[in-house]
């Protein structure tokens, strides 16, 4: 399979210094994942687990105090690392190759300008078409999304939440980008509208054939839209696998809890909430960041954080309690280095 996006050992921290007090918030810590072409990769996790920071980082939309401290981000449509591009190349890339559908579509659309102007601002420079041809293309595109062309002359506040979100989808897909990042695109919508919007996103993604990272905390949405799923907890990826495997057979205790606590119609067995609060990323717990809330915590969990280890094809888990194969991350890194050194030594001989 072709890889559309490959992220390796990505670290992005918020670094602040006020009145001489240095603080670092480790919002994204050592994330490695890859997204295949035409795949929808879901990311799930609660608020402040770093998922928004992660997508901001892979969209090159960071500004201080957020800083990328290490790792690489490679898209298939770029010939080099994302952070080696200059500002002009980034502008060129955005919207044409990489676009976003965000949570509050009100934040995408300028509230004091008509929708038409947003299309002109965002998409027109990338399409390189004459004004009238461009708007014909936009109208045809809106039509495909079952929106009337009259929305172009409306202000964002005149549209309902669902319509606004569809306009945002239209904006994100009009240039037919290779990669789409969707950040909680349906969270603010109610159930009926949510289903329509999700169906529309899926339809567009299939038609354009783009890859997608889909972020939401709602596992029921992931069950319906994502091919693969990564679970984030406190800035780290703790489990990854196909959506079906994860929902059917979750391995990490955090994932297990998330899935067991989902309420379903027709099910009245008591569900438990997780005790404790999500950890602060400014001062994360030592070792595995889940250990203070984990029912399976052992001594080693408090000491060293577990490496995200492949336990089955396409299945990675970071938990000592799940399998003896999972090693502390620093040991795994040392082992990797050793084998690499062995290999290069063998090569030299």
């Amino acid at each position: 399979m072709d890889v559309a996006l490959s992220v390796r050992d990505l670290r992005a921290y918020y670094l602040t210094s006020h009145f001489g007090v240095e603080r670092e918030v480790r919002a994204v810590d050592d994330i490695t994942l890859s997204v295949e072409k035409k795949e929808i990769y879901g990311i799930a996790g609660e608020s402040s687990c770093g998922k928004s920071t992660f997508i901001r980082t892979i969209a090159a939309a960071i500004r201080p105090p957020l800083r990328v401290l290490g790792g690489s981000i490679r898209y298939s449509f770029l010939d080099r690392d994302l952070y080696d591009l200059d500002e002009r190349a980034l502008t060129e890339m955005r919207w044409k190759h990489l676009s976003c559908i965000l949570q509050g579509s009100m934040n995408v659309l300028n509230p004091v300008r008509r929708v038409r102007e947003s299309f002109k601002d965002f998409a027109s420079p990338h399409m390189g078409l004459a004004r009238s041809v461009f708007f014909d293309a936009v109208k045809a595109h809106l039509n495909r999304l079952r929106l009337s062309p009259t929305v172009l002359s409306a202000f964002p506040h005149e549209l309902s939440g669902g319509m606004r979100q569809r306009v945002a989808i239209a904006l994100a897909t009009v240039c037919r980008p290779e990669f789409i990042i969707a950040d909680e695109p349906t969270t603010a919508l109610d159930v009926v509208v949510q289903k329509d919007v999700l169906a529309l996103i899926l339809e567009m993604q299939r038609e354009i054939g783009s890859s997608m990272i889909f972020v939401t905390h709602d596992l029921t949405v992931h069950a319906n839209i994502s091919n693969r799923l990564g679970i984030m907890y406190a800035g780290r990826l703790v489990e990854e696998g196909s959506t079906r495997d994860i929902l059917r057979d979750p391995m990490h205790p955090y994932t297990r809890h998330l899935i067991a606590s989902l309420p379903r119609i027709g099910d009245v067995t008591p569900k438990k909430g997780l005790s404790g609060a999500p950890p602060s990323l400014a001062d994360p717990p030592s070792g595995c960041r889940f250990h203070p809330r984990c029912p399976l915590a052992m001594d080693i969990c408090r000491q060293a954080h577990p490496e995200l280890t492949a336990l089955a094809p396409g299945r990675r888990v970071a938990c000592y309690a799940v399998s003896p194969l999972v090693q502390p991350a620093h040991e795994a890194a040392a082992a990797r280095k050793a084998t690499k050194a062995d290999k290069s030594a063998a090569f030299l001989q």
């Binding site: 609660e46 608020s47 905390h217 709602d218 596992l219 955090y254 809890h257 998330l258 606590s261 309420p263 008591p270 569900k271 438990k272 909430g273 997780l274 005790s275 609060a277 999500p278």
Partner: peptide, 10 residues
């Protein structure tokens, strides 16, 4: 958050 939702509901 999803992990805390059920504790409020309970």
């Amino acid at each position: 958050d999803a992990s805390l939702r059920m504790s409020i509901v309970n």
